[in-house]
Design a protein around this nucleic acid. Structure first.
Lengths: 156, 156
DNA sequence: CCTGTCTTTCAAGCTACCTTACTAGCTAGA
DNA sequence: TCTAGCTAGTAAGGTAGCTTGAAAGACAGG
């Protein structure tokens, strides 16, 4: 994208878009750090799986579609998560071609740790901006996401 | 990081951090699209150079440090930008080990196109959120960037 | 002038994707 | 019903974008 490296700590008076990127980068890394710090080693990209996986199990292609990557790439992610003991591949009884990717107990614990970390960070945002400020931020972001789509009539 | 793919358009009621990421992704791609659309082909990562380069020329190592990548990686970026005609390598008269990376006229035009695109997007944000809203958003992001650093006393 | 440090480049390797190609299993139409 | 075509997953190989390691040329201090 447009840089947004992790370090550098000087907020500098940048444009709004850079600031959004820096804020995301700053907080996003803290999610992974939090989960890893809680004793669940993983790579940042693994969160794409954890965020999408259904409690009852999901198919690989389904996860790939939701994460917007190819089934092959998702297959490798799943291989890694299987090695880490977070998921298993089980036969899908309704379709013998397919396998269900299901969370192990350890996997569920990792997801829960992620959820807790995010909750903690959200509370931190509230502490910094105030409850009203945080709510206003979310409202503005929602509005931006809805109305700043490239096809919604903008030209450079 | 934590996913944030470009497509998917459904805002869904996500956590604030995901929303920040999606907003950044949404707008960040529009910067590159705008510049490319203005007739200046480039890749997203090239903006890291354009954003950092000094009008009087910068050294490769200097650019690498600012972009937080290795000099080798920056060297490849510069190779590409040189092929595209946006920069040239000139000998640094004050240190014969070094070379100055300087913008060509085309490079300066590309930087200007980038600046214009960003200005346009900022205006669009203002149109969506209102001048007061946009200002409030920037203030909140500034506050977050200053106070949400990982070392500033937070634990998951 | 010799040693150590800097600037840049070459080489090799890694990661996270991709495309292409395949097998096994499902499904629908003649 | 059987066969043509689609889908789920896997395998092999390629590419982009970085990394570390090592080297050559250039500077600076003792």
């Amino acid at each position: 994208m447009v840089s947004t490296t992790q370090e550098s700590s000087e907020p500098a008076n940048l444009n709004t878009i850079s600031m959004l990127g820096q804020a995301y980068s700053l907080l996003g890394f803290q999610i992974v750090d939090g989960v890893v710090g809680a004793g669940f080693p993983q790579k940042p990209k693994h969160s794409a799986v954890f965020a999408q996986i259904d409690p009852n199990g999901s198919r690989l292609t389904e996860l790939a579609q939701r994460a917007n990557i190819t089934p092959q790439a998702m297959g490798e992610l799943i291989d890694e998560l299987e090695d880490l003991g977070y998921v298993t591949r089980q036969p899908d009884t309704t379709d013998r071609r397919a396998k269900l990717i299901v969370l192990t107990d350890e996997g569920r614990a990792a997801v829960e740790a992620g959820r807790q970390t995010i909750v903690g960070l959200e509370e931190r945002i509230t502490a910094i901006l105030g409850a009203k400020g945080h709510k206003a931020l979310r409202a503005m972001l929602t509005k931006l996401l809805a109305e700043a789509q490239p096809d919604a009539g903008m030209q450079a």
